[in-house]
Design a protein around this nucleic acid. Structure first.
Length: 931
RNA sequence: GCCCAGAUGGCGGAAUUGGUAGACGCGCUGGUCUCAAACACCAGUGGGAGCGAUCCCGUGCCGGUUCGACCCCGGCUCUGGGUACCA
């Protein structure tokens, strides 16, 4: 710009600019979010992070940047936007670190939170930090404990289809006994009259009530490691041995707290329909909930009084039953195994006992053992052998199945392997290609259902079972009640004491929070009890012994989004008025790894709180978007064996080499900075290199980001070099938010150049004024900017941020080639870019003479008049291949187009002498001629 | 094993509803500026054939539907996420 040569232009000093605006934002408190506002509310939420010791890497902020852009956009659109951040601060890694180092998890967690906050603050987010929550903060977990107590004091009344206080259940028992009472998620309530209820001992009453509570105790199978003296997560078990130390792990039944998620199963399933979640996410939840219709059937054991219940989705196939299979952990196994078979069964139990459920399902080998016992077929009275096998899981259904090898693949494989009979019972010849799941065919060899279609046979069998009193139609859910006990230290203590009878009692709500006491050792007690069991003066109280287990990670994360609304409230987990204003989350962004766990538990808690009248919405998260995982891109050098000489990537085949990870910070465009590499480690100081084209080229591979692979990129380093705006734009430019993608810092140069081009476009002088034209914008300028407004508005709404960045680049390129310095146009561009690049746009906004923060202004709208096209260049295909491009008026009629096109010289060449079979004209799109 | 995704140039990706495959950017090549380099700017860049106009091939693999398929259907392969105590 010749005209500007006389003026001194302000330099693009990124760090000074960031400092300046950060300070401005704090001083003017522009990110304060009021709980009372005339504006409509909008709630944007990120899945809050677990503050790990490693700090943030560039993968973490991807979703946070996206939500920040959306939150800022909504703000510009006139909403009062809640966009908070907090920490999921209880968890295993801190506890493990404490065991190894003796450092209190609270100390390390608080340090890690401080690091995370500092790193997050480097990324220009609009969080109102006054709303921060941390799940390990007693002020927070007071309410986690409170909600647990409410779950403990509630049951699910199927008659009203909602959770109710336990008092309503006791009233029913006192009035009519158990008659007519249906408690959700409870298989069978014992039958008793009102009088019988009164006659029951306190202990008996407590047991019955416990079996109906939404937070209840029962026995569950866990991975017990005797050597470590603790229960392990499936993650911590590999091939029957603990991952740490390699000690044997066994399956053990332990008394555990659980949440009755199953009571809500039907609603969790049905209410998915109204949520704006991806189909994939809903499908995963549907499959997890796993509703299936079938029948429960009781089988009598031969020469015994014992019966056992099975669940089948195909009661119609009952005449095809040729054996029964129990899960290895089934209670009956020990009782019914004959002396002859005991050795074989014990060996199998040892084999299966060492495997987790996941490992068992993965097992391709067919395995099992015969108990020696037989069941009686309810219709034929024949004896059916009872086997055990790992393919039947104790946690699903009743842990027992009737096997129909002719109609089930796994049963068939089992029958084949162990030479058990296969009885054909369905003629599928009428339905070629139908699978077992389709439930189609005509019954054969099946006594009273012979000749029936499958659906009719199902009804007929169910009816007969019911008449005989040995079974009935039943809906089964795969979803299990959530295990809620952890034998760990670093979690919420249960607000529960055991009275002299050993009955759990809620402590008074006025005693909350029940805080974690200090402990001398974080190591497991060795007896299967949690570390808290050793703190005897905490455990023993006047009311009884405290529960020493703690709550799981998902406790605090199941309701945190409610606390952000009113984080300092000491009388309520959220003030009802405040809750009614914010309602629920409008947009929730987080990883698919939480598809079923966290997102099911949160939904269940929310429905519970809704039923009890504490929240006003039925679902917590209206719209859900899953950001993809950012993977690392590792770089490799190739060391020639037994030397300190490294050979460049493309020459490595000529040598015997070993591949070593090199830090990605020393590599640019796959070329290694050999000097930096020599300084990296003492043993590389005298390394030598065999180069290609004068360079050392590295190999590369996409892997998980991890310290040991030297491929972790810290956002702090990027911010220091390129600035926050550049990092934000680049993370968005990488690709679609939902896709997983590898991180490669090399591409950031393009975004950095783009920002410099933007800076130059404004020509800001030393008095912070942009050298721009006040004239009315030209038609071309208007078209360029309004096209961008349209594109960016639409793309932000569908969270397609990568294409927004492309649109900015195209717009700036266009304005540069138009030599445009128009103020109106640049003002709109500044507003469009403000959610993406919060710092530089403040600078632009100020330079245009605007007052206040750009983030409190209004988003522009596009004018369709400015972007109207009068002609369209049509691709003309002949037999589906593009042969010509012809410009035509956009409003051209089909007949006129046909005449023009067929007469066009480029088309004539292809159609001459040929018969035109079809002329396809898609207005505004394409023309295809079939000859 | 089961459930859910994904695969497009050397690389990240675009193509929103079945309608011009490769927008935008990185990298690379050539050029301008410079003593030189860096920066910046200009031009080119899916593969192949041809001086050229132009033609052939091309969206993980095999097959199908359609005037027309990256997009829909059937069957695979590979990669990622989840699989209930990692968060």
């Amino acid at each position: 710009m010749k005209a500007n040569d006389t003026l001194t232009m302000k330099a693009y000093d990124i760090q000074a600019m960031q400092q300046k605006w950060k300070q401005y934002w704090v001083e003017h408190d522009i990110y304060h979010v009021p709980n009372d506002s005339d504006k409509p509310k909008y709630y944007v939420l990120d899945m809050f992070p677990y503050p790990s010791g490693a700090g943030l890497h560039v993968g973490h902020p991807l979703g946070y940047i996206a939500s920040d852009i959306f939150a800022r956009y909504k703000q510009l659109k006139g909403f009062n936007v809640l966009h908070p951040m907090g920490f999921d601060a209880f968890g295993l890694p801190a506890e493990q670190y404490a065991i190894e180092t003796g450092q209190h998890p609270e100390t390390t967690t608080n340090n890690n939170i401080a690091t995370f906050k500092k790193q997050l603050d480097n990324l220009g987010f609009n969080y109102d930090w006054k709303r921060q929550v941390s799940t390990c903060d007693p002020k927070y977990y007071k309410w986690t404990q409170w909600i647990f107590l409410q779950l403990f004091k509630s049951w699910y009344n199927i008659a009203n289809n909602k959770a109710e206080p336990l008092e309503t259940l006791i009233e029913k028992f006192e009035a009519n006994g158990s008659t007519g009472v249906q408690a959700g998620g409870v298989d069978e309530l014992p039958t008793f009259s009102a009088e019988e209820w009164q006659q029951k001992s306190a202990q008996e009453q407590a047991d019955i009530l416990m079996s109906c509570r939404l937070a209840f105790q029962s026995y569950a199978t866990v991975n017990w490691c005797p050597a470590l003296g603790t229960v392990l997560a499936n993650d911590e078990v590999k091939d029957g041995f603990s991952e740490r130390g390699g000690h044997p792990v066994e399956r053990k039944k332990m008394r555990q707290w659980a949440l009755r998620v199953t009571a809500f199963a039907e609603r969790l399933l049905n209410d998915l329909d109204d949520l704006a979640w991806s189909d994939a996410m809903k499908e995963m939840q549907r499959n997890w909930i796993g509703r299936s219709e079938g029948a429960s059937i009781f089988f009598q054991i031969a020469d015994s009084e014992e019966t056992f219940e099975i669940f089948t989705t195909r009661p119609d196939t009952i005449f095809g039953v040729s054996f029964m299979v129990l899960a290895p952990e089934h209670d009956l196994v020990k009782k019914i195994t004959t002396t002859e078979q005991k050795e074989e069964i014990d060996a199998y139990l040892a084999y299966a006992g060492a495997k987790t459920d996941r490992e068992r399902q993965q097992e391709k080998k067919v395995t099992g053992a015969f108990t020696g016992a037989y069941a009686i077929h309810p219709f034929t009275q024949e004896k059916v052998p009872i086997w055990i096998s790992e393919y039947v899981l104790i946690g699903y259904g009743t842990g027992a199945i009737m096997a129909v090898p002719s109609d089930d693949e796994r049963d068939e494989a089992f029958a084949t392997k162990f030479n058990l009979p296969i009885i054909d019972i369905i003629d599928k010849s009428k339905y070629p290609g139908a699978t077992q799941k389709d439930k189609l065919g005509i019954m054969i060899n099946s006594d009273f259902v012979d000749g029936m279609e499958v659906p009719d046979a199902i009804k007929a069998v169910n009816q007969r079972l019911e008449e005989m009193g040995i079974g009935k139609g039943k809906v089964n859910f795969k979803i299990r009640d959530a295990l809620y006990s952890r034998q760990r230290y670093w979690g919420e203590p249960f607000p529960i004491v055991y009275d002299e009878n050993g009955t759990p009692q809620a402590i008074s709500e006025s005693e909350l929070p029940l805080t974690l006491p200090p402990v001398e050792s974080f190591k497991p007690s060795g007896t299967g009890e949690a570390p808290l069991a050793r703190v005897t003066d905490w455990v023993n109280t006047a009311e009884g012994k405290r529960e020493t287990d703690t709550m799981p990670g998902f406790a605090g994360s199941s309701w945190y989004f409610l606390r952000y609304m009113d984080p300092d409230n000491e009388d309520n987990f959220v003030d009802p008025k405040v809750e009614q204003y914010w309602q629920n989350v409008d947009l929730y962004i987080g990883g698919t790894e939480h598809a079923v766990g966290h997102l099911i538990y949160s939904r269940m808690w929310h429905k519970f709180l809704y039923d009890r009248g504490w929240v006003s919405t039925n679902e917590p998260f209206k719209r859900l978007v899953n950001q993809g995982m950012i993977q690392g891109r590792s770089s490799f050098a190739y060391r020639i064996k037994n030397t300190n000489q490294f050979v460049s990537y493309n020459l490595r085949k000529d040598y015997e080499v070993s591949r070593l990870h090199v830090p990605v910070s020393m590599v640019k465009n796959d070329v290694l900075d050999t000097e930096a590499f020599k300084q990296f480690r003492a043993d590389y100081a005298d390394a030598t290199f065999i180069l290609e084209d004068g360079k050392y080229v590295c190999g590369a591979e996409i892997e998980k980001m991890s310290k040991s692979k030297y491929n972790v990129v810290n956002p702090d380093d990027i911010v220091a070099k390129y600035g926050t705006d550049c990092l934000r734009l680049f993370e968005m430019f990488l690709g679609p938010l939902e896709h997983g993608k590898p991180w490669n810092t090399d591409g950031i140069e393009g975004v950095s150049r783009f920002l410099k081009k933007c800076w130059n476009l404004f020509s800001i002088d030393e008095s912070d004024k942009a050298q721009v034209s006040d004239a009315a914008p030209s038609a071309k300028e208007l078209k360029a900017i309004h096209k961008t407004i349209k594109k960016v508005s639409e793309d932000i709404e569908r969270l397609s941020f990568n294409t927004c960045v492309s649109a900015f680049m195209e717009c700036v390129n266009e304005l540069n080639s138009l030599k445009s310095k128009n103020k109106t146009v640049l003002r709109d561009l500044t507003l469009l870019m403000a959610p993406f690049a919060p710092f530089i746009t403040e600078e632009f906004w100020q330079s245009l003479g605007e007052s206040g923060s750009v983030h409190l202004a209004s988003f522009p709208t596009y004018n369709p008049e400015y972007i109207k096209e009068s002609t369209k260049t049509y691709p003309v295909q002949i037999n589906g291949k593009v042969r010509a491009k012809i410009e035509l008026p956009v409003d051209l009629k089909r007949e006129d187009a046909e005449a023009i096109i067929l007469a066009h010289q480029k088309v004539v060449k292809w159609v001459e002498g040929k018969n035109i079979r079809k002329f396809i004209f898609v207005p505004g799109k394409i023309i295809n001629i079939v000859v």
